[in-house]
Amino acid sequence: MSFASKWSQPIRWLHLGLFLTITAQLFLSLVMAGPDDKHQSLLEHSTLIAHEYIGLVAAAIILAHWVYLALAERVTFEHLFPWSRAGLAGVFAEIGGLLRGRLPDDNEQAGLAGLIHGLGLLLATAMGFTGTVMYFLLQAGKMESTGYDVAVYIHGTLANLMWAYWIGHGLMAIMHQLLGHDTLRGIFRLGR
């Protein structure tokens, strides 16, 4: 049984969960007010509460993703983090192809695509961690602490990177689809 057929179903559900929760988080952040804003409207307060709870769900999905990766075959980590000589050679070869106007094949083990997904997972992990720290510090009444301020700063900075990742990733998927790859259906196909 191949890697793709053995492990694709659970990872697709995790990817869908990440896509939905991160998308919700990004758009909620455009409306919500910070917890220290004393003049929040009902909408701003409601979206803040939704952002907190959806963030906890996102953090749980991210943790499940890491557990899944730890239990799956080793090739998964090599796919997401191609730091070996051969992995980096594959990434640079694909970048060279892109510079010549050639997209990589629909190969699930492609180096550049894996690297991009790995970096996105690291970014989501850092955002989930800092958001969870912020949530529990707020619950403990430690909004005035240095730890909270540091978490807020890191979380806000990473949010800008996540917007860039989210937009860039979506545009690349659409470009692949327009160039004849069956990318979008492959992303959202959850059945066999």
Score class of each variant (00 low, 15 high):
M1R: 09
P82R: 06
Q40D: 10
L123R: 01
W83R: 08
A4K: 13
K142M: 13
D36N: 12
P82A: 02
A4H: 14
K6S: 11
Y148R: 05
K38R: 12
F3A: 09
M143I: 14
L190V: 04
H65G: 10
G96T: 04
S8K: 15
L42F: 12
L28K: 03
M134Y: 04
L26H: 00
L137V: 05
H117F: 01
L184P: 08
H155K: 04
D106V: 01
E52P: 01
Y153P: 00
G101W: 00
P82L: 02
R100W: 00
Y165N: 07
H39G: 08
A89T: 09
R74C: 05
Q9I: 15
V75Q: 15
G97L: 02
G156R: 14
L69W: 04
L43T: 14
L119S: 11
Q9K: 15
G55W: 08
L71R: 15
M1W: 07
H15R: 05
A59M: 09
L99Q: 10
I54F: 13
L88K: 13
R189Y: 09
Y135F: 15
G101Y: 02
L80Y: 09
T183N: 04
F136R: 01
I54Q: 11
L138N: 10
T125G: 11
D37T: 12
P104T: 08
I95W: 03
L71I: 00
S5W: 02
D37K: 13
E94Q: 15
L137H: 01
A4M: 14
Y135S: 07
A140L: 08
M143H: 08
G170M: 04
I116Y: 07
A4Y: 15
A33F: 03
G120K: 02
I62V: 13
S41V: 10
A60T: 10
G96W: 08
A93E: 08
S84A: 06
F3N: 11
V57I: 15
G170T: 02
S84N: 11
I187M: 15
A72R: 00
V31I: 15
V57Y: 05
R100T: 05
R85N: 11
E108M: 13
G120A: 11
L190Q: 06
R189W: 14
G118H: 06
V67W: 09
I154Q: 07
I95R: 00
I61A: 01
G118V: 05
T23L: 13
F27P: 03
L69Y: 03
L171E: 06
G55C: 10
A33M: 03
Q177W: 07
S29D: 02
P104D: 06
L119C: 14
A4F: 14
A89S: 12
Q25A: 01
H65C: 10
H79P: 01
A72V: 01
L190R: 07
Y148Q: 01
Y153I: 13
M175F: 12
G111S: 14
L121N: 12
A89H: 07
